[in-house]
């Protein structure tokens, strides 16, 4: 079931004709994988009036851009997109197929994998090629990392969250081809039809671009405690991040979660407070320059991935920190 499958594909999602950064990040990773395999890297673009923009993807590493340009494909709709992608995969037979783990990507990927009955792993934090040329899809597992393989089916599919891989610097001198493909959508039923999109401009500087991040976890305990986290962030000019429990408790917003199923941050300084340091969270802070942890349990695993640790009840330490930084700000 793996014979005749060659090449690495990256689905590059677009919104209003603009390519999402995660697609470009995956082209960078896809380039490495394709080189390792000695195979071609293709970017797959679906949309309306996207043909002319498609060329730009070559600069990000694609050898070839496959474009399906039709009015009906302007916005993501499951049935139409899944039909096009499934048909192209069956025809062109890529061996590896990577998609960004956006809401749309996390809808499209299992739909296509289900139709092809192939393997799919979600929210991978690392991708490698083993000696047999297979895609090793690494995801956090309990207190460790697990490697997922798809030995007998193709393509080997994986989704990756935005920000996990870095944006490659575009190289204008790279050459490649843009190939427009026709797919007949006349007879495809659009059973879940998009009626309207309501989009909001995100507020403030995104967490993933912040130079300082103050993150809180379950150990914060209540909304009042969460205020302390926000106060500390404010005096530091930092963005507020969170683990999963504060989301579940309603202290933090979904877009503040750091980790495998959230954001990857790369600040100069990360301060984690009341956070145990579970792998699913820690994968999102690996590239922070300096990591500080405040936790009242000396055995908390976060201390193993921190530069500086303070073993204490955060309620005693954080107010002192806030005062100190306030003073520094006023004198400095």
């Amino acid at each position: 079931m793996t014979e005749g499958y060659r090449g690495v594909w990256v689905f590059v999602e677009q919104k209003k004709g603009e390519f999402l950064p995660v697609g470009l990040q995956l082209l960078g990773k896809g380039r490495e994988i394709a080189d390792r395999l000695g195979e071609k890297l293709s970017a797959l673009v679906l949309g309306r009036d996207v043909k002319d923009k498609a060329k730009a993807l070559i600069g990000y590493g694609a050898d070839e851009v496959l474009v399906v340009d039709q009015p009906k494909l302007e916005d993501y709709q499951t049935d139409l997109y899944a039909h096009v992608v499934t048909e192209l995969v069956q025809k062109e037979r890529p061996s590896v197929f990577l998609l960004g783990a956006t809401y749309n990507g996390r809808d499209l990927a299992p739909t296509v994998a289900g139709r092809l009955e192939t393997g799919l792993s979600s929210d991978c934090t690392r991708l490698e090629i083993d000696e047999e040329g297979r895609l090793v899809q690494v995801v956090p597992a309990f207190r460790g990392m697990a490697s997922i393989l798809c030995p007998d089916r193709r393509p080997q599919m994986a989704t990756i969250r935005p920000g996990v891989f870095r944006l490659p610097a575009p190289d204008e001198s790279r050459t490649g081809t843009v190939r427009e493909v026709q797919v007949d959508l006349e007879t495809v039923e659009n059973r879940a039809e998009l009626v309207e999109l309501y989009l909001q401009e995100p507020e403030g500087k995104p967490l993933e671009e912040a130079e300082t991040v103050v993150a809180g976890g379950a150990g914060i305990g209540d909304l009042e405690g969460w205020k302390l986290i926000e106060d500390l962030a404010q005096v530091l000019g930092a963005a507020v991040g969170a683990t999963r429990p504060p989301l579940d408790e309603g202290w933090a917003r979904e877009d503040q979660m750091i980790g495998q199923s959230g954001k990857t941050v790369r600040p100069d300084l990360y301060i984690g407070i009341g956070i145990s340091g579970e792998t699913q969270h820690v994968v999102g802070i690996e590239d922070a320059k300096v990591v500080v942890a405040i936790n009242n349990d000396p055995g908390a695993p976060i201390f193993k991935v921190a530069d500086y640790g303070i073993v204490a009840d955060y309620r005693k330490v954080v107010p002192v920190l806030i005062e100190r930084f306030k003073k520094l700000k006023n004198t400095g």
Binding site: E117, T118, G119, L120, S121, V136, A141, R143, G144, M145, A146, S147, I148, L149, C150, P151, D152, R153, T279, V282, V291, K304, V305, A306, D307
Partner: peptide, 15 residues
């Protein structure tokens, strides 16, 4: 199942 779990490793840290 098309996917299998290979090895589980513990992350190493340099901090």
């Amino acid at each position: 199942s098309p996917t299998i779990i290979g090895d589980i490793s513990t992350p190493t840290t340099t901090r």
